[in-house]
Design a protein around this nucleic acid. Structure first.
Lengths: 109, 109
DNA sequence: CTCAAACATTAGACTATTCATATATTATAT
DNA sequence: ATATAATATATGAATAGTCTAATGTTTGAG
């Protein structure tokens, strides 16, 4: 049924729809990072980062390996980045459209 | 700053992260639809549909024209569909990975 | 002018997300 | 055995998103 596809797809989008999770994914573009490193790179609290990592793990965007007391997280599917980059194109076009709207309003006065 | 990009991008993803909104966008693939038609196609309540249409409008995914008492909605940026289709590929791969996980567990017993 | 149809908006209840705080857990060092 | 560092998890409060029901608005018909 189409509805269940939409439900699943929506949950996938939802799991990406958070600034900190996007920041984490971006940080992992350049390879493995520990939780502490991600904390420094993104400026989030330890617990908060762990929670967001858990969300990304459940959705198989990332995976990790333990080494001693450290946890090295890494991206699990490079295709996410194609997706995220396309998302970037999308919003850049939308920003332009938005600017044009405002310009039009200003000109119209 | 990167943070504001992540915030904006997250709000964009969030606006797509709802089953009914995805259903609406899918319904609009084949061209203009009135609110009543969208109601029939997606099975949502009138008010609910209108609210979700408003969300999609704010984010410039759709636009509309009025003709008499009818409102004809249509997609505003065809690139959304490239994006949505890529999303589909993403989750299909994840489903497969998930299935493999389960299989591995079953085999391991 | 009045009514009905199509749609939009508002208000409140309900549900889900998020964050911070506190508390586990695990591994290593002493 | 204890202490500490790194990470994870649980809990509750705050916030945001969603739905339903009711009300508004606009248009066209009669």
């Amino acid at each position: 049924m189409k509805q269940s596809i939409h439900r699943y797809k929506a949950s996938l989008f939802k799991s990406l729809a958070h600034p900190l999770r996007l920041a984490i994914l971006d940080a992992l573009r350049e390879g493995e990072k520990t939780v502490t490193q991600l904390q420094e790179l993104t400026g989030g609290e330890q617990a908060t980062i762990s929670q967001h990592l858990a969300v990304l793990r459940v959705h198989h965007f990332i995976t990790f390996r333990k080494e001693g007391t450290l946890a090295y997280y890494r991206n699990e599917d490079a295709e996410v980045y194609i997706f995220l980059d396309l998302g970037r194109q999308l919003y850049e076009r939308q920003l332009n459209r938005h600017r044009q709207e405002i310009d039009a309003q200003v000109m119209g006065r």
